[in-house]
Computed example of a mutant assay.
Amino acid sequence: MNIASYLASRGGTATAADLRLAGLSRHRISAAVADGTIVRIRRGQYGLPLDPSAYRAACEVTGLLTCLSAAPDYALWTLMPAQSLHLSVGHRTPPPGSIAHGRCRHPRHPWLPVAGLADVLIHALHCLPELESLVMVQCAVGRGDISLDFLRGKLDGNRNGRARAVLDLVIPRADSLLEVLANTAFCRAGLHVRRHVEIPGVGEVDFLIEDFLVVETDGESHLAPQQVKKDRGRNNASVVAGYLVLRFGYDLVVHHPERMLAQVLAVLELWRGGGFHP
């Protein structure tokens, strides 16, 4: 086995024990260090030379990536990538510019220097703004990777009230982060919202508001020519069935939800005033 390839397959770092389990002897490990193929990060931990990854940074301080920095390792939805390293380092001093989190209390990732999913989400709920932590939790819960009851059980007491409030925003099903963000905005505006409603001749729509306004949230896949054609047909079928339709893309839903909500409210006001009646 090529030792450099093995390290690359495991995020660029591995312990001496893992290397030996992969069939690499102490002699081969020492020889690879001697010829510069790999480097010894610290006692019992090896990596690739000139590796700038977050994994390497975590290993250098005997820490674990967590919160937003660990989201990619669990394929969690995020609104933006981590700008700083989020690390769990116990009682050790974190590197300058990083964000320190508390101890990890659940099993870690099996081979990467990454906290376990439970700790990643709990740290996110304590650290990130409401909607940023919400989409991470929604993704994990929606896939069945973790349960809301489990997370609530770990977040008792007054100091966890804010985190539990985020859990209350998780919905049974969201096919994209756009859906959970839009749902939060609509419900907080006091609107009557139904999700994933099946309309004859149209199919399933993302939202039906006040039982007459269809709202669709369009991610990047909706920009494909074939999908654009399909969406136009669904729009027309919705109008023929007696519904009004609004569609919102990523930019409005994520960066300007107030504009999205203003358009929805404007249509509702026109409808209530007879604007769409003969």
Rank of each mutant, 00 (worst) to 15 (best):
E216M: 12
A82E: 15
Q263R: 07
Q138R: 04
E220V: 06
K229I: 00
V135N: 04
V141H: 02
W111Q: 11
V89S: 01
L151M: 00
G102C: 06
S221Q: 13
M136V: 01
R164L: 12
Q45S: 13
L252M: 09
S84M: 09
I199H: 02
F248W: 03
W271M: 07
F212K: 11
T37H: 05
V120E: 04
R194P: 05
P81H: 10
V202N: 14
N236T: 14
E198W: 12
S30P: 00
R272E: 15
G116K: 01
G242L: 06
I38H: 10
G153H: 04
C127R: 01
G219S: 08
A22T: 06
S221Y: 10
L167W: 00
L24D: 08
S30A: 15
G11A: 09
L65W: 05
R173G: 03
T15M: 08
H101Y: 11
V180S: 09
T78F: 08
A31R: 13
H126L: 09
L68W: 01
L169H: 03
V193W: 04
Q83L: 14
A115G: 13
L65I: 07
R234C: 06
R272V: 09
S30C: 08
V135F: 03
D218K: 02
H101N: 06
G153E: 11
T66E: 09
A71K: 00
N158R: 15
Q226H: 11
S5R: 15
D206E: 03
D73Y: 14
S84R: 15
P96V: 03
G153C: 07
G249A: 03
S221K: 12
L65V: 08
S69H: 05
W271V: 12
P278R: 15
V193G: 05
E210K: 00
G90C: 08
Q45A: 14
V39Q: 13
C127D: 06
Y250Q: 08
